[in-house]
Simulated assay, not measured.
Amino acid sequence: MARLLYSATMSLDGFIAGPDGDMSWLSAFSGPDPAVDALVDEIGALLVGNRTYRGDDPNRGTDNEGAFGGAWCGPQFVLTHHIPETPVPGTTFLDDLDTAIAAAKQAAGGKYVNVLGADVAAQCLTAGHLDEILVYIAPVLLGAGTRLFLHDGGTNISLERLSTNESLAATSIWYRVPR
Rank of each mutant, 00 (worst) to 15 (best):
E132P: 12
F149G: 10
W72D: 13
D96I: 05
I43A: 00
L130G: 02
T80H: 13
D119M: 14
L150G: 15
G74T: 08
G21E: 08
N59Y: 11
A144I: 03
H81I: 08
W72R: 06
L39E: 08
G44W: 02
Y136P: 10
P34Q: 03
P58W: 00
A108T: 12
A118D: 05
F68H: 10
T86Y: 07
L141E: 01
V88C: 05
D119T: 15
N114D: 15
I157A: 03
V78F: 00
G69T: 14
Q123R: 10
D119W: 11
A118T: 06
S24Q: 14
G145V: 08
P19K: 12
V40C: 05
G18S: 03
G69K: 11
V48N: 02
L148D: 02
S24V: 04
E65N: 07
L141S: 03
L97R: 01
I133Y: 07
A122D: 02
L142M: 00
L141R: 04
R51L: 15
G31R: 03
G18T: 00
V135H: 01
G44Y: 04
I16P: 08
V140Q: 03
L47S: 06
W72Y: 15
I101H: 01
P19C: 07
L39K: 02
E65M: 07
S30L: 12
D131V: 09
T92N: 13
G55R: 00
R147I: 03
D98M: 03
V40D: 06
L134W: 00
H81A: 15
T92K: 10
G18K: 04
R147F: 03
M23S: 15
F93K: 12
P75R: 05
A138P: 00
L142C: 04
N64H: 15
D57Q: 09
S158K: 11
